[in-house]
Design a protein around this nucleic acid. Structure first.
Lengths: 229, 229
DNA sequence: CTTAAATGATAGTAATACTATTAATTTTAG
DNA sequence: CTAAAATTAATAGTATTACTATCATTTAAG
């Protein structure tokens, strides 16, 4: 049995559902490749159309503009990650063990998930690291938020915030700590590879070091002693 | 006596020194206003030229493109902030007291510094919050870094990292904690006003709450008990 | 097998991100 | 004080980007 993981996307993010056709799926898979390759600023729908072998107008039938595509991809990623977390922490009772698992999932390089053929999660993870915050660091953040574009991100932080509260019910900043973990899992990665003096991991350049840093940060905030690493 | 604070800028950031002429100073002051008003994406040199009452070509004689202007402004801000920190923590012996002061300086809304007539630090602070990370979240980060464009940011983090090490010489992640404080001082502010459910400060919306969060985060990491707030 | 829907091909527009040229003005050096 | 040098303004122009519109053709669903 091969079960297909389908992430329910906000319909206001697209004009035509990209998951409903071959062209749409190409827009997603080639879009990920090209944003990864050129960076979001230099990425254009024209390049994407050429890469796919279709026309600019073809892309515009699916996405209003490249910002919407980026928001779509980030929303997809957060949705996917929340599923990974709920799946991989299922049946774990100890919230501290859960939280450690979450930190590991956030900070570890992602391997491509074969369940979703047209999304390369590994590349998408890299895009989230370098471009993810551009989805909300805009003047339209208020309107975009009203349209619930960031719901998957907020849901993910809410889930992590809940685990934090389960670890220490009197801790005062579960949501801020959750968003801090998420952002820092990515920023410390970006810094490690691009501005290494902003981190303590410049020499080894290993994701496990980011995990250790985040674990220490989180568990000392929650006043929980860690058994290992 | 009125002493003028001059921040030494990297010469590769501009074509002609904007601090050397009236037009240059206008580019800085109106640039700050317009980036603040429209956001960096919608900001153009054409709008800036119209706002100043000069021509596009005039702006291009000072800055190669708008990205360089953003990098210039962020570099200026980090340089200014490092000066503020060194000034305001001068003669303080206790590194923990120093660190608290640093966190407050990072997280508090900035009031306009009259020493620098053509830079509105308060607006610039807002720009750093919303646009600051776009200075380095690019494909050219490597080349820009080679040209030392991010030196002021790295210097600031180094200073903070040193204070952290002074607080607890065996703490293993002083640099990563420093960059975490800096980034989170700004991101939690952005979230508080724009995506409040990602924080615990949505109701009060006060910078002092971000300070409390960061203080708790930092001092529990460093295993130092705080006397107050 | 018919018809609606999706795609491809082509064209076109307004705005952006620049570069080049020359004229006018200001600054500075002798 | 004046000529030369530097700076700025005015104008024009190009390539690319970010779209929109139209219509013919292919595909797929009933």
């Amino acid at each position: 049995m091969k079960l297909q993981l389908q992430i329910k996307m906000n319909e206001a993010l697209f004009l035509r559902d990209p998951e409903s056709s071959a062209l749409g799926k190409n827009i997603l898979s080639h879009g990920i490749q090209l944003i990864y390759k050129h960076g979001f600023e230099a990425f254009t729908f024209k390049k994407l159309a050429e890469d796919i072998g279709t026309t600019e107008a073809g892309i515009y039938r699916y996405f209003e503009n490249k910002h919407k595509l980026l928001v779509y991809l980030t929303a997809w990623y957060w949705g996917w990650l929340e599923f990974q977390i709920s799946f991989q922490t299922n049946n774990i009772d100890d919230p501290a063990v859960k939280l450690k698992k979450v930190i590991r999932l956030l900070a570890m390089a992602v391997e491509d998930d074969e369940q979703t053929s047209y999304i390369n999660e590994s590349l998408l993870h890299q895009i989230i690291i370098s471009e993810g915050s551009k989805a909300y660091l805009t003047k339209q953040v208020g309107e975009d938020n009203k349209q619930q574009f960031f719901k998957p991100y907020k849901d993910l932080c809410a889930v992590i915030g809940q685990i934090i509260s389960d670890c220490n019910p009197v801790y005062k900043y579960p949501r801020s700590l959750a968003s801090t973990i998420v952002e820092m899992a990515h920023f410390q990665n970006f810094f490690m590879y691009n501005l290494p003096s902003l981190t303590d991991f410049g020499k080894k350049k290993e994701e496990t070091e980011i995990i250790s840093f985040l674990n220490h940060l989180v568990f000392s905030s929650l006043e929980i002693k860690q058994e290992h690493g």
